[in-house]
Amino acid sequence: MLIRIVRMTFAPERVPEFLEIFRSSEDKIRQMPGCQHLELWQDADAPSVYCTHSHWESAEALNAYRGSGLFGQVWPATKALFAAPVLAFSVYPAGTQPYSSALPTS
């Protein structure tokens, strides 16, 4: 399982637009092949900062979603509302993937 976190900062006046986009697409995203979970989080200290937290069967499933028509509609509309650069990253639960000994040493 791959976990994807996307942290997005919006101008306060753009938050309602973002929430409308998310609410109208969240069930469709959950139905994408390989999507196991999707949540929306709001920052406790910065109310115009939101994170999506999603679980995917694999990186391939996430990439298939990212190449889909749905993503092609949702992401550009969301991206147009950003007030700061997005922070997005993927992680695996510790111990579920083979440890790589080829990590940089410096």
Results as ranks from 00 to 15, higher is better:
residue 56 W to D: 01
residue 54 S to N: 02
residue 49 V to Y: 08
residue 50 Y to W: 09
residue 67 G to D: 12
residue 62 L to C: 06
residue 51 C to Q: 11
residue 74 V to Y: 04
residue 47 P to K: 11
residue 67 G to Q: 13
residue 30 R to G: 02
residue 36 Q to P: 00
residue 64 A to R: 09
residue 54 S to Y: 04
residue 49 V to F: 06
residue 56 W to I: 02
residue 75 W to P: 00
residue 69 G to I: 02
residue 40 L to I: 15
residue 63 N to Q: 15
residue 26 E to G: 00
residue 64 A to C: 05
residue 36 Q to T: 05
residue 42 Q to E: 12
residue 64 A to I: 01
residue 76 P to Q: 11
residue 46 A to P: 00
residue 34 G to K: 01
residue 71 F to E: 01
residue 36 Q to I: 04
residue 28 K to C: 06
residue 42 Q to P: 03
residue 27 D to E: 13
residue 74 V to G: 04
residue 75 W to C: 01
residue 29 I to N: 01
residue 74 V to M: 09
residue 81 L to A: 07
residue 77 A to R: 08
residue 37 H to L: 10
residue 42 Q to I: 08
residue 38 L to C: 04
residue 75 W to L: 06
residue 67 G to K: 09
residue 74 V to Q: 07
residue 34 G to T: 08
residue 46 A to Q: 14
residue 48 S to R: 05
residue 77 A to E: 12
residue 51 C to A: 15
residue 69 G to V: 07
residue 71 F to C: 06
residue 75 W to I: 10
residue 50 Y to M: 04
residue 76 P to R: 11
residue 61 A to Q: 02
residue 72 G to A: 11
residue 69 G to N: 06
residue 38 L to F: 09
residue 53 H to R: 09
residue 32 M to R: 00
residue 78 T to M: 12
residue 31 Q to I: 02
residue 65 Y to V: 00
residue 43 D to G: 05
residue 71 F to R: 02
residue 34 G to A: 08
residue 49 V to R: 15
residue 46 A to D: 10
residue 71 F to K: 00
residue 60 E to I: 03
residue 74 V to W: 03
residue 68 S to W: 09
residue 31 Q to K: 13
residue 72 G to I: 08
residue 79 K to N: 12
residue 29 I to E: 03
residue 80 A to W: 07
residue 72 G to W: 07
residue 58 S to W: 00
residue 81 L to W: 09
residue 44 A to T: 13
residue 51 C to N: 13
residue 76 P to W: 08
residue 56 W to H: 03
